[in-house]
Amino acid sequence: MTPAVRIGKRSLLAILATSIIGIIAFSWPLFAAPDSAAVAHANDAPWLFALVVPLLLAVVLAQFTDGGMDAKAVALLGVLAAVVAAMRPLGGGAAGLEPIWVILVLGGRALGPGFGFSLGAVSLFASALMTGGVGPWLPFQMLGAAWVGMGAGLLPRASGKPELLMLAAYGAVAAFAFGLLLNLWFWPFTAGLPAAIAFEPGAPLGQNLLAWIHFTIVTSLGYDIPRAVLTVVLIMLAGPTILTALRRAARRANFGAVPTFEAAAS
């Protein structure tokens, strides 16, 4: 099936560059060299990245729309983003019970990596606008969700039970990893923690990694595990129906419809 959003050469380049920079923006606390600029300005680095990441996301989305995204994709994107935004309050933010990952994973799976990427970014942006939740965390949430959606679209071919299991496993990993990443982003803001779980700018990778893992265990595991479990449960229960609905929609929308014109035989 034709994917809903075509990824051209330049879009691919933009995704790659954004992902590389995004990975650095998330993981610099672990990897930054002791005498690097980021460590020297460890207080400001997260803010700099919070400005850089949205600009790069804008470049990727602009590349998608520049030729690869027609009215059908834009409309479907808007509607599914609305579904995600309407679902967000359902979890009530309690203990990471966010049902939205089901839509992101299944949407990316049914409609392709380009659409998945856009859906992740656009839906979190839209829901933040709606609730007045625009903040420095937003670009990172958007990037994380975009990766989740894109990854789902890149999973290997499968169908039936194996596909469902694969998606559930992916959903668990993705929802969990999203929590870890956001945690990593937030980590440099925490100060005053004991050395064993504190970020120490410029410390060796091993020390910071260990500290981060401990930090995660102490702080956010209680959110990340329920989120992953909920995602698995929802994918196993509702996955087939939702996937069918999305695929029906894609078929009905007929992405990349090829009109044929012939002269009348007269």
Binding site: K72, N254, A257, V258, P259, T260, F261, E262, A263, A264, A265
Partner: peptide, 12 residues
């Protein structure tokens, strides 16, 4: 029809 829906249109 047929640009959006796909399909074949013979004639004009």
């Amino acid at each position: 029809v047929p640009h959006f829906t796909g399909g074949t249109l013979i004639g004009d």
